Simulated scan of single mutants.
Amino acid sequence: MGINCSHKLKYIKLKKWLKSRGFEDSDLRPAQFWDTGRGLMTTKALQAGDLVISLPEKCILTTGTVLSSGLGEYIMRWKPPVSPLIALCTFLIAEKHAGEKSLWKPYLDVLPKTYTCPVCLEHDVVSLFPEPLRKKAQEQRTTVHELYMSSKAFFSSLQPLFAENTETIFNYSALQWAWCTINTRTVYMKHSQRECFSLEPDVYALAPYLDLLNHSPNVQVKAAFNEQTRSYEIWTNSQCKKYKEVFICYGPHDNQRLLLEYGFVAMNNPHSSVYVSSDTLLKYLPPLDKQRNAKISILKDHDFLGNLTFGWDGPSWRLLTALKLLSLEADEL
């Protein structure tokens, strides 16, 4: 059981703000849990097939929200077009900077101030990761840094909107925070392609209050935007007892993926797997194998030197295939 936090001012303000946008109070309450941290508890027992939460379109933050804000005309003018992701990052940073003037302040006030995704961790912490995870973490850092560098000119174009220098507002740590907010908290919601955006898929939606629901690999839910009710809805396929934490499932992810994408790992995760690096694999090859280079070349050409894992059921098909090929005699190759 968790400690009910709905009396806290930031949650009172959030609920009031959501109500003004058409959200009807649900049976969910923000609470603090010893094992998962902040989450939502239910004040009534939930049965399979029950509606967990229904969040009206007006409460959801999408690229449509961004385009109807003061940033809209600058995004529409900018060439080459910015990505939907950068548009949302820019909006979050600008609204956070606006403080009391932001229409989204009650939501921004409950967002995490910091994140535990690898991109936010110190280098000496990342260096302790197993090699396959360390490599992925470094790729993530590079992605976010390149995103920042490629967006600097666009950020500068927004100067007329701000009294303060845009370089101070849209700095690297601000983008890192906004990127993590979107990466860890958005729900999937497909939007039609707009000419003012680049061709990357526009599938992000920030869903206040609903995004307080934590992940469990052991539950099943149905989540989607309902075109009839114009709301984002979550229906549970699992039972949940009164005053217990309500979970949703972010997907059948192993702990490496959960740490990379969301900054946490799941206890007793049925999708857990151990990644085997290509270095480890090749270390145990007979050094005198004359076909060694040919075998490695075949594996590389068919992309079989990455994503090699052991799960609860033993080695994955990819790992077995790689091992079989490496074990072939010269006349079998």
Rank of each mutant, 00 (worst) to 15 (best):
L326D: 05
L285W: 00
L40H: 03
L103Y: 09
R185M: 08
S272E: 15
K79D: 06
L108W: 12
S216Q: 04
S198K: 08
W104L: 13
R185F: 03
L18E: 06
W78K: 08
G99P: 10
K58V: 00
K10T: 07
Y250Q: 07
F154W: 04
A98V: 01
K283W: 06
Y232K: 11
L258H: 03
C180Y: 08
P208F: 15
L206I: 13
H145Q: 14
R230P: 08
N255E: 05
L161N: 04
K96Q: 10
S102K: 08
H302Q: 05
A266G: 00
L326Q: 01
L108V: 11
P286I: 02
A48L: 05
F162Y: 11
I182K: 03
F33A: 02
T65I: 05
Q239T: 14
G263T: 08
E122D: 13
A98P: 00
G22W: 05
W177L: 07
E227G: 07
F129A: 10
T65F: 06
V246D: 04
S192Y: 10
G251L: 05
W177C: 07
K152W: 01
Y275V: 00
D109R: 06
R257T: 12
S150K: 11
D279R: 02
T116V: 10
E245L: 08
A224H: 15
A98G: 01
M267L: 12
V144E: 02
L328V: 03
T229W: 11
F197D: 07
I12F: 08
N255S: 05
L158G: 12
P30D: 01
W317P: 00
Y209S: 09
F225A: 04
Q193T: 14
S273K: 12
E332A: 05
I248K: 02
S68K: 13
D313Y: 00
K190A: 14
S102I: 07
